[in-house]
């Protein structure tokens, strides 16, 4: 009984993963993310070679330096939502519209396996994508700047990776929630994109904001993009410790660097709020989907 549940989940997971890795939609997205990501870091490495003399945390600067192109972390903060949305905006409603959901749910599997399997496939995809990207970018960066990451930098990058996946998972969950609530694929896609754009807009308020302690700052905090960006910024710029430093974009390494533990301690609440949002999306998805009637028409 138990094992059959897991096997059902794994079957769905495997199929969804295959679907993702064979869909043009995803392959194109994958290529775009890779090309842009590598471009951003290449330009950052170039900049580091020419401009940066401070060799402290130089490997991390690959990911946080703003050369002519905006930096890698910013790119991730903005693109991950899109990845999550593209992976999940039609997860449930397209199956419902195609009539496959009825067939799927008439098999001996728990309903949550459908959501979980799809979610897992999405998260694993994002994990693969981000790990490959960060490593690839690191490899290229290593070749260009010739400085290997210190163990501390490696830990920070690992944390960055995990947090980015969690962040992507939130968007995945949100898009999936919409795909459960909205019957039409176009509606769920538009709703997800709208939230994404709104979040980016709120995030940009951070930068437009001139004084540091304004209403804009508080409003901006609503945006998951802002929250995520704070987290990775504090994590990858070991000297940064407050939001005000985060907004002054091109801070390299301010005075005294924090230890990994201290950085993590600072970002913990923010991280928890991203996790909370993900859990909320998930809970709402469950509540709606678990007892819902599945008609094929």
């Amino acid at each position: 009984m138990k094992s059959s549940t897991i096997s059902g989940l794994l079957t769905i997971f495997h199929k969804e993963l295959s679907d993702i890795f064979t869909s043009w939609r995803f392959i194109i997205l994958f290529l775009i993310v890779f090309v842009v990501g590598i471009g951003v870091v290449w330009s950052a490495a170039q900049y580091i070679r020419e401009e940066v003399v401070d060799a402290q945390f130089v490997f991390l600067q690959l990911y946080t330096t703003s050369s002519p192109l905006p930096f890698f972390t910013l790119f991730i903060a903005i693109i991950m939502p899109l990845v999550g949305i593209i992976l999940a905006f039609d997860a449930i409603n397209s199956e419902r519209n195609n009539g496959t959901m009825s067939r799927l749910l008439s098999q001996p599997i728990y309903r949550d396996s459908v959501i979980n399997g799809k979610f897992m496939a999405g998260v694993v995809t994002m994990g693969i994508m981000l790990t490959a990207l960060v490593l690839l970018v690191g490899g290229i960066g290593l070749r260009m700047i010739g400085v290997p990451p210190t163990s501390e930098e490696a830990v920070r990058l690992m944390a960055f990776l995990i947090i980015s996946v969690i962040y992507g998972a939130f968007w995945l969950g949100l898009a999936m929630l919409f795909s459960i609530f909205f019957r039409r694929v176009a509606t769920s896609a538009l709703a997800s994109i709208a939230i994404w754009l709104l979040s980016i807009f709120l995030f940009l308020v951070l930068f437009v904001q001139t004084e540091q302690s304004g209403l804009g700052l508080a409003v901006s905090q609503i945006s998951p993009v802002t929250v995520f960006w704070q987290v990775i910024y504090i994590l990858l710029v070991p000297g940064a410790r407050t939001l005000s430093q985060v907004t002054q974009s091109n801070v390299t390494v301010p005075s005294s660097a924090l230890s990994v533990g201290q950085s993590l301690l600072i970002v913990w609440p923010y991280l928890m709020s991203i996790l909370m949002l993900t859990v909320i999306c998930f809970a709402a998805s469950y509540i709606k989907f678990m007892r819902e009637e599945i008609r094929s028409t």
Partner: peptide, 8 residues
């Protein structure tokens, strides 16, 4: 089960 509007 073959649903009313079967889909693959």
């Amino acid at each position: 089960y073959i649903p009313e509007k079967v889909g693959f």
